[in-house]
Amino acid sequence: MSPLVRARGLSKRFGSVAALDNVDLEIGQGRIVGLIGPNGAGKTTALKALLGLTPFEGELEVLGRDPRRHRHTVMQDVCFIADVAVLPRWLRVSQALDLTEGLHPRFNRQRAEAFLSRTSIKTRSRVRELSKGMVTQLHLALVMAIDARLLVLDEPTLGLDILFRKEFYETLLNDYFDQDRTILVTTHQVEEIEHILTDVVFINGGRIVLNETMDNIGERYAEIAVGPEQVEQARSLGPIYEHEVFGRTVFVFEGQPRERLEGLGERRVPGIADLFVAKIKGAVA
């Protein structure tokens, strides 16, 4: 099956700074991909290129179409939440439903209303009267009722408290996601999404530094806490990163066969956050 998103040599410069530097990326159907990178790494630029919101160089196909030239037809199959708190403040909940129903051919109003009925949001309320968490719920209700093939979430839970953040992703996973849908998400709160991801992409300085399925990460990467007596032995195996925790040294290895690492200590799959630090800091060192 052809991928939903296919980018070849995607580049974008702001003056002398490369926001995207020759990025190749493919996203297949039914995946939940986390796009993770430090501030200014090019995450948002990549998403905007994908959504046809910014000009770029290189080849890019979203659902087989060029988002630069066919933005509004691409948007029939793609949904995105840029920063959920930003719905127009004058909009009433009922008007939001009317609008989306009127403008989106794949919107199922009953579905959105069913979701809203589980919240304390009233249809007469205006967005300006809702709390930040409720605005998120409203936006999510709208988006989940759209039968889109690709959902793009850019920092969707920014500024929300932890209860809403957890609920947001749980709802997304339980009530929305299935084999036919694909989700691309960027966030700083990596720990909150790593258990729902199927794929993870690290981006730094406009370049992709890691692109793996979560299954492969367990195979390819290992994190081992080593006692002082074995530190030199571990270093000789070429770890990509090391740091001290409670007097032990934690090493991250990439691509080392299991048997070579045996005996050093307990092998764990590194968390996405740790792996991120290892890849980004390791690349700098």
Partner: peptide, 17 residues
């Protein structure tokens, strides 16, 4: 909608500019 930053919401709908 550029000032109140809701423009991306409008851009997320399948409507041409």
């Amino acid at each position: 909608d550029r000032k109140d930053r809701s423009i991306l919401f409008w851009k997320s709908l399948p409507v041409s500019d």
